[in-house]
Nucleic acid binder design. Sequence first.
DNA 1: CGTGGCCGGCTTTTT
DNA 2: GCCGGCCACG
Length: 683
Amino acid sequence: MRYAPGVPMALNPEQQQAVEHGPGPMLVLAGAGSGKTTVITQRIARLIERGTPPRAILAMTFTNKAANEMLERIVRLAGHRAAEATIGTFHAFGLKFLRIESKALGIPDGRFAIFDQADQAGVVREILRTVRGAADRRYDVWAILARISKARNEFVVPDAYEPRLGDEYGEVTKIVYPRYMKALRAFRAFDFDDLVCETVTLLESRDDVRERWQERYRYVLVDEYQDTNHAQLRLVRLLGGGHSNVCVVGDDDQAIYGWRGADVANILEFDQHFAGTRVVKLERNYRSCRAVLEVANGVIQASEGKRHDKRLVATRPDGQKVQMVVGENGEAEAQFIGNESRRLLDEGLKPRDIAVLFRSATQAEAIETAFKGQQIPYRLVGGTQFYEKKEVKDLIAYLRAALNPRDDISLRRIINYPARGIGDVAVERLAQHALANSKPLSWAVERAPTIPGLSPHAANGCKALHAVIEIASRRFAASESPCSIAKGIVSGVRLETDIAAGSGSNAVAARRKGNLDAFLAMLERNDDKLRGVDALGGFLQMMTLQSETDSDDPGNVATLTTIHGSKGLEFDTVFVAGLEEGLLPHARTLDAKASDVEPQDLGEERRLFYVAVTRAMNRLYLCRARTRQARGGPKGAARTPSRFLADVPPEWIESRAVTGFQPASMKSMLDGLAGVLAAIEKA
DNA sequence: CGTGGCCGGCTTTTT
DNA sequence: GCCGGCCACG
């Protein structure tokens, strides 16, 4: 017996308590599938019904998808004016806040860029080039960025940063961190961490600002609270500090973002941060049949770390036993998932009821092949985001450069793309010249002909680049159609010609051009809304925080996603792929590299498995391969089953082995037959 | 000095 | 199978 999302159902007593709770702090410990979203949305609706103005409500989530869904459901429950509530991710809230308060930050017009990871990496790379002795050592910029991010979220300022003893990357970080912060400010850019940390800093340092925002938001709600980090905790405390009407919802068993600085202690010790907290536990599971639930309970009860004591209670029938499937190799595993899905679809299951979950995005490819083979429509969540695709980022870099003359990183990205004769030496010279005059790179590009030592060839290139950007910039200022301006850039620099030439195959070129067109189409759809520098700038800021899959309705298709990406979702049928040591738990967790920030947490891997299992409503398949070709390794390397499978209660399990069968290839057919024979012999 | 071709290492997870 | 870095050529 399941409730349809958004349709009021009879609440159980605990849910009722959480929904009806009045002022004062509350912690809702909501087990997987216990109706958490229902509670949070109904609670907001109830607050509005009782007279709280929607604009006095702030609800923060971790993903845009969760935010969108929450908004949709609240509007359905409480009517259209509910849309005035502030509902979004922590980062989206930070962006909104910083735009409004930008005057206090010294950016009166609110024009700043948001740097994603690729941009951040660019900044660090650039800094490393100038650090003596670092240029030749090929440092992993991600490792440095991870350390900077960790320090910042704990509010360790550059001067106070002290690396752990023997942490070589920490030593480099000590040098890079202060320069990184200076560079961001010089570029008028904020990174993801800034959106939260700068918000906190401003709220802490300015009493008037803090009071204003505290006054505005009389109720603060946080979803997935177990995944908050220190900075986010500070933000919640600041905003809720005045009235303590803070309601957080979460499940410590589903804490899977420790690697990003999330601290489970936040949810374990919530009542220490907010005195007089009421705790409500939701342990009745409405999602999964009992077989799935028993497996989930077995897995999570075996965990060793500290956790809130709770156990999911089944409300649904036993259902079908959980299928434990061993493929002869990775292809066989993927083919099984494809074949079984096809069988279920033929029995009447809808594609959207199926999800395949894996630890790492690299596992998706094999599954994609199998689904294509079975003609099953699917969407791949995660992996490279739309706006991160090179061709899209290139065009965005042109737009950003035209909007923000101080955005050196965007300018560097396109300064010689497509090639226009400005090589590394010329770029260095331009950068030196700009630095010597304390001006941004664009200033040097503009006056290239006057810069000594710059070849006429390079100066010519600068002239061409400057012309394109200047035209775009003027047209933006004149509020012309952003889509036509973007198209002007594309043709002005012959981007499509370069895409055609630079892609290995026609298929790749077509795909890239398709992405570019999709971006232009997106601009066109919003053309009138995006006219003018501020509107387009705001759009680009938001877009950096969005992923492709947040907005589009996927339609009736199966879902392939990482386990991280599956959090908060549910599916009738779930395949978990790659349940092997090295994949889940991931090898990186088993033996850490020198570049890792801190020792990895096996408990988090277990919780990942738990999250994966609890996505399933009716059918769950736990899949692995007996052998698998590791990256560049030997073909038939034997694999060890994931240690977590040992905690799965056997009475709820049914096992089977499968071999690959590819009619297309004689060899694999023979291999498959051999496997079948071997299996028969064994039995 | 710039470009294009070739080689090697690789993102675990995401706002 | 892809991006960033290195080398030889124009």
